[in-house]
Amino acid sequence: MLVIDIVSGLLLLAGSILGLSGAWGLLKFPDFYARVHAASITDTLCAACFVAALMLQASFSLVAVKLLMVLLLLWLTSPTSGHALVKAAHRSGLRAVTWTPPADGGRS
């Protein structure tokens, strides 16, 4: 029981850190297309950590099944909405900032 609580707590902590990092990236990254990647962290691993933590506390019950459904739903819909978002942005003419390595090999 105690072990489960500790693992669950650690997973909650990991999820929180991942979520905050993703949000920080969302604020800090230079252009829209880079921000999509930051947001995608919070949709994948962060959500998985939270759901896994809650499933450990729910043990085997209908609640655990529902939690799994939440995760599957998020993992199925997030690529679809992400793809639709990027495609719409691309169609409307928003150009991605791409970076080619400079000759001196370092970014000043």
Partner: peptide, 8 residues
Amino acid sequence: LAVNMFGT
């Protein structure tokens, strides 16, 4: 994108 993230 931000609103989508807010939602999830």
